Simulated assay, not measured.
Amino acid sequence: MRRLLSAPAIDPHGTPVTTAVFPAEVAFDPAGPWQRARSVALRPEPFGALVYHFGNRKLSFLKSKTLVAVVEALADHPSASATLVACGVSEAQRPAYEKALADLARSQMIEPRETP
């Protein structure tokens, strides 16, 4: 049996990314600390941003500039909930943004952040 191997993916810093093993799916908890995944690049666009994961080669579209700001600010706040507040997301909009963040966590675009 022949196995086809492709060239390894390269992250934005030129480092090869292993694509064979992925961590188990992590449940999104808005009370926890999160960050944009290390293997993910954001490219600003007029509609929001393109998000590309160099490890699993997934491409996503963020169709809200506020959501882009939230994803970029996750590492600067103690929790995803605190990030939403800091980015001016209203209480009424929070469930929709939490769902979007949960989808990004499921697709490994954001990841839990270790706290010191």
Rank of each mutant, 00 (worst) to 15 (best):
A20R: 04
M1Y: 02
A49S: 11
V26F: 12
Y97M: 07
P33C: 08
D29P: 00
K58V: 06
Q93C: 01
H53S: 08
L67P: 03
R3F: 14
N56V: 03
A105Q: 05
K65S: 01
P44C: 09
L59W: 04
L4G: 11
F47A: 07
A100V: 13
K63A: 09
L67H: 02
E25A: 12
P8F: 07
W34I: 15
K65T: 01
L104A: 07
K63E: 08
H53C: 15
A20N: 06
A41F: 05
G55W: 11
H53G: 12
D103T: 08
Y52K: 11
S79M: 02
I110Y: 12
T115H: 05
K58S: 03
A73V: 10
V68K: 11
M109I: 12
G32L: 15
P95M: 03
V17C: 02
L5V: 01
T83E: 00
D11V: 12
H77W: 06
G88I: 14
S64Y: 04
V51R: 03
P8V: 08
T15N: 05
P30W: 02
L42Q: 01
A7M: 05
A31V: 03
S64E: 03
L104R: 02
Q35M: 13
S6P: 01
K58N: 14
D11C: 11
V89M: 01
P8M: 02
T66A: 04
R43P: 00
M1W: 02
A9P: 10
F61S: 15
L104N: 06
L59A: 14
Y97T: 01
P12V: 14
L5M: 01
A92W: 00
R94K: 15
R3L: 15
A27L: 10
